[in-house]
């Protein structure tokens, strides 16, 4: 995997390299540049890059300019921006050039690791295999979580609640679920709840408020709003339509 790293501060550059080395175990080649100009030179002269990670503020040539040029040169190169700036202007411009992700300093190891994993997966055209030493066990956990959610739709479901029952750290559970299913845990829970609501609305004559309560969303107005977001119809409309 070829990665171009453009960052003017050597400490950060070294740190990033360390993280990348932690995540990507094989066939890794990292090119480092301390400004945009050097980075662009490297990009043009060396072989095809699988990922470009760049800071925004750098001497000679800044990150945005670098982005623009790389996109001109080779449109489909994945780029990740790491910046201390979260000003809207920067982010918008970066997004216009089609960056893959926009990470804010100080970055969390996990965030960067996730991005790397995604690129690796896309590059191989399937889920990364070498990263999960016990894939079966992982899938088992996900299945357990999904079962738990299905059983608990009526009550409150919090990340903590699920994490306790599968003996995992909440954050880790959340990450794992996202990685395994490509979906946020909270989105999954809401989806299941709405699915149950559809069932109840078409299959029973329970009142909307009762359906809402049975789907773990006691505030029926909020429930109606969520329901409409997911199905395009209010619960009443949905029921009338059959």
């Amino acid at each position: 995997m070829n990665i171009l790293l453009a960052e003017d501060e050597p400490k950060i550059r070294q740190g990033l390299r360390a993280i990348i080395e932690d995540v990507v175990k094989n066939e890794l080649r990292i090119l480092e540049a301390d400004n945009g100009k050097t980075a662009f030179e490297m990009f043009r002269t060396s072989e095809r890059m699988d990922l470009v990670i760049t800071d925004i503020r750098m001497k000679e040539m800044d990150g945005l300019e670098l982005l623009r040029r790389i996109k001109q040169e080779q449109k489909d190169t994945p780029i990740v921006v790491i910046s201390g700036h979260d000003e809207f202007e920067y982010a918008r411009e970066a997004l216009r050039y089609g960056v893959m992700d926009y990470l804010l300093k100080p970055i969390e190891r996990v965030e960067l690791a996730r991005v790397l994993a995604r690129i690796q997966a896309e590059g191989k055209g399937g889920p990364a295999g070498d990263e999960s030493p016990e894939p079966d066990k992982e899938r088992l956990v996900i299945r357990k979580v999904k079962e738990l959610i299905q059983q608990s739709l009526e009550q409150e479901i919090s990340l903590q609640f699920l994490a306790e029952r599968v003996y995992l750290h909440p954050k880790y559970l959340s990450e794992t679920f996202k990685r395994e299913t490509g979906q946020n845990l909270s989105d999954y829970v809401t989806e299941r709840r709405i699915a149950k609501a559809r069932q109840l609305l078409s299959g029973t004559t329970l009142k909307v408020a009762e359906v809402a309560a049975m789907c773990g969303i006691p505030n029926h107005k909020y429930f109606a709003s969520l329901f409409k977001q997911h199905t395009g119809a209010t619960p009443t409309e949905y029921r009338e339509r059959g």
Binding site: E9, K11, I12, R13, Q14, G15, L16, A18, I19, R57, G84, H85, L104, K105, P106, I107, E108, R109
Partner: peptide, 26 residues
């Protein structure tokens, strides 16, 4: 200025990370 602040924090974090001080980095 934010750039200075966040870059400094990032440097410290990276330094910690390099030394396997994951907790500090976090």
């Amino acid at each position: 200025n934010p750039h200075f602040l966040y870059n400094t924090l990032e440097s410290i974090s990276m330094a910690a990370g390099r030394d396997r001080q994951d907790e500090l980095s976090r």
